[in-house]
């Protein structure tokens, strides 16, 4: 794809990224950070792509290392976020709050 098309996607993504989180409450800062952290674990895709066409041992070794790291980021990120958010679900407690 040509550079300008990629640049267009990049710039539009910036605006979407800012827009979608602009109204987050402070309570959710940590889970949101953690969820975003998991999403960039998708670099796993890049790691698989470069390893799948690796021609030298160096490239293969580095590629496999990148795959392991990226998979830790992605899977660990989503699982830990889910654990945090598990706490937020409304619990069946007889609330005599105030």
């Amino acid at each position: 794809m040509d550079a300008i098309a990629l640049l267009t996607i990049f710039v539009l993504s910036i605006f979407v990224g800012i827009e979608v989180v602009s109204k987050v409450s402070a309570v959710l800062h940590t889970p949101l950070m953690s969820g975003a952290n998991a999403i960039h674990g998708v670099v796993l895709v890049g790691a698989i792509l470069v390893t799948g066409k690796a021609n030298t041992t160096l490239e293969l070794g580095l590629g496999l290392a990148a795959i392991v790291l990226a998979a830790i980021n992605m899977v660990g990120g989503f699982v830990v976020t889910d654990r945090m958010l598990e706490m937020f679900k409304p619990k069946p407690r007889d609330g005599e709050a105030k």
């Binding site: 990049f10 993504s13 910036i14 990224g17 979608v20 989180v21 960039h40």
Partner: peptide, 9 residues
Amino acid sequence: VAGTLVGAS
């Protein structure tokens, strides 16, 4: 897209 979303947010 994914990287930029995370970078911006």
